[in-house]
């Protein structure tokens, strides 16, 4: 693992350029999707109406939403294909897979928060909260893609499936969007921006580097593996 030229020896490479690019892609897509999608869901709000008119009207907004959804789908599929290929070819450890340890880590952390334990849970490359975020967005993302496609092509879909699938897809799409929005807005932004350890911003996903101190605190098991020379 190379050191960051700016941070000296104490910086450790955490994310590859692919992941940084992927993150930017997701940031852009989700921002566009939330702006164009939630304004449609909450169409009755003055702000939504103002925003939609600023974006060129409802037809424009719907097309922007569909194209952004297309790019998001591409990104998500690529993410899964690359991850599966990486794991299958043995190049990557299945570090994002949910294990029993994640549940015990959550319990341990709760104990630590309530003062029943002195140390927080010792986590690997991704702690249980990061995994939760990833999987909710991944699973939610696939649900959004599926239901979004149904809403995009209702005539085609109803040639095979019953008509009720359309309002069901709409209910899932708009509710799940809100869920993902809240997890992203609340959970991810708080963790990556307002969390006392990283404030004012967790820059690791933008620079690709993380400090050794943070690694020791947040991902001690991964740091130990790195020090032992175990491949990621």
């Amino acid at each position: 693992m190379k050191g960051n030229p700016a941070g000296g020896e104490r910086m450790i490479r955490r994310f590859s350029r692919l992941r940084i690019f992927e993150h930017w892609g997701i940031v852009l897509c989700t921002l566009i999707l939330f702006a164009t999608g939630l304004s449609q869901r909450f169409w009755h709000l003055d702000f939504s109406q103002w925003l939609i008119l600023k974006m060129g009207g409802i037809d424009n907004v719907r097309w922007i939403h569909r194209y952004a959804g297309g790019f998001f789908s591409l990104g998500l599929i690529l993410n899964v294909v690359v991850a599966v290929a990486g794991v299958v070819r043995g190049k990557w450890a299945p570090s994002m897979f949910i294990t029993k340890k994640d549940f015990s880590d959550a319990v341990e952390n709760m104990k630590y928060y309530f003062g029943l334990d002195d140390q927080p849970a010792k986590c690997d490359r991704y702690d249980y909260m990061e995994k939760f975020e990833y999987w909710t967005i991944l699973m939610g993302g696939f649900l959004m893609i599926l239901t979004g496609a149904v809403l995009w092509f209702p005539i085609l879909v109803t040639k095979i499936l019953p008509g009720e699938i359309i309002p069901a897809a709409k209910a899932l799409h708009s509710n799940e969007a809100l869920l993902i929005f809240l997890i992203n807005a609340l959970w991810h932004i708080i963790n990556a921006v307002f969390s006392p350890e990283v404030f004012p911003l967790d820059t690791s996903i933008f620079t690709g580097y993380i400090s050794r101190e943070r690694m020791a605190r947040e991902h001690p098991i991964e740091l130990a593996k790195l020090d032992e020379g175990t491949p990621e």
Partner: peptide
């Protein structure tokens, strides 16, 4: 559009346990 398509419309009913229960369950669950 084929004969399945009109059912994409909820016929002015608000989803309830008796009318469009699937939509009602999904909305309630969320």
């Amino acid at each position: 559009a084929n004969e399945n398509f009109p059912n994409a419309w909820l016929f002015h009913y608000k989803p309830s346990p008796s009318k469009h229960p699937l939509i009602f369950i999904l909305n309630t669950a969320y």
